[in-house]
């Protein structure tokens, strides 16, 4: 009996140490979470009074790295891993602010990898995104297990693409609809957009093509909307700094001229499909010099965001 009591006391001591250590760990984690929660509330409080509907309208589908990557693929531009952001910056301590835009940056990279069917390279990015999503408390929308399995087995790449995009849509919707967290959606969208633009500009400098130049030039419209969103939070120092970083890029985009040709749509019923032919066109006028300056400014903004 004494022996049992002795073992119990030893075990009790062991558990007390474990509980003490884990409570210390928890207090550190809680402290980080509390700081991020305070940051959430403070930034949200700075938001200019704007209706939820207006914000949704502004940010919905603002960035489309998938369409950008599809254009590169369609033009026969070869894949290059050099363009992608390194995942090591995620290992250092990140604030909610940083995690949100990095979630966007790595999402764009994942889209690029998926479009070129580089499933094995995508595994690293899926793990990084999972870390960021968990850090922001949105890990439940990122089906890490299925995504990793699909990427590792290099199978069912259509599902891999679908699930990746769908997870991001779910995260975006959740953040936009959750009080005090819509600013994180704006940052994620910013990250997606800048990385998509960075990929396009890197391709444009190595493999010039008028379609890519035009796609870059028309980002003027999107940057304008994006800055409108970021300006909602400009009273916050981090947002203000980000807006300042985007300003030289915005100055270059402002020089680009976009004109429109008017025309009425035509409707065709062909092979069981209904097709609406748009005869109204947008025409982007971008010179080589303007393009080069945008390439340069995009690189500066994007590299600063990923800590290069």
């Amino acid at each position: 009996m004494n022996q049992i009591l002795y073992i119990f006391k030893k075990v009790q001591g062991f558990f007390l140490i474990i509980i003490f250590l884990s409570s210390c760990q928890t207090s550190v984690d809680n402290s980080d979470q509390n700081e991020n929660a305070i940051q959430d509330t403070l930034i949200s409080a700075m938001e200019i009074e704007v209706s939820e509907e207006a914000l949704v309208d502004i940010v919905a589908n603002i960035a489309s790295p998938i369409e950008m990557a599809a254009l590169m693929n369609r033009l026969g531009v070869p894949f290059s891993k050099v363009y992608l952001a390194g995942t090591s910056s995620v290992n250092v301590l990140n604030t909610n602010f940083q995690m949100a835009y990095k979630l966007g940056i790595f999402g764009a990279d994942l889209g690029y990898l998926n479009m070129y069917e580089k499933a094995s390279s995508a595994v690293e990015y899926i793990s990084t995104i999972k870390t960021l999503a968990d850090g922001l408390g949105v890990g439940q929308f990122f089906d890490y297990t299925t995504l990793k399995r699909l990427a590792t087995n290099n199978q069912n790449l259509d599902s891999l693409m679908f699930l990746s995009v769908h997870s991001y849509n779910e995260i975006d919707s959740y953040l936009r609809e959750t009080p005090n967290r819509s600013y994180l959606s704006s940052l994620m969208i910013t990250g997606l957009w800048i990385e998509g633009l960075y990929l396009a500009t890197q391709v444009a400098s190595e493999y010039p093509h008028p379609d890519i130049s035009e796609r870059i030039g028309e980002q003027k419209i999107i940057l304008n909307d994006l800055l409108n969103v970021l300006n909602l939070y400009k009273e916050n120092q981090s947002f203000n700094e980000m807006i300042q970083d985007f300003e030289p890029l915005n100055v270059e985009f402002e020089k680009i001229n976009i004109t429109y040709e008017m025309g009425d749509p035509e409707i065709i019923e062909k092979d069981g499909m209904l097709v609406f032919v748009q005869n109204e066109k947008s025409i982007v006028d971008i010179s080589e010099e303007q393009l080069n300056r945008i390439i340069e400014e995009t690189k500066k903004v994007r590299n600063k965001l990923i800590g290069l």
């Binding site: 419209i221 909307d225 976009i258 209904l274 097709v275 609406f276 032919v277 748009q278 109204e280 947008s282």
Partner: peptide, 29 residues
């Protein structure tokens, strides 16, 4: 687009399709 209808899953004949195609020629909202 800008208040004008540019696509619909209802054909002028009144037939309802499950989808329609829209080859976009103008970047915008």
């Amino acid at each position: 687009n800008n208040g004008k209808i540019v696509g619909s899953s209802i054909a002028p004949s009144g037939k309802i399709y499950s989808s329609f195609d829209f080859p976009c020629q103008k970047t915008g909202s």
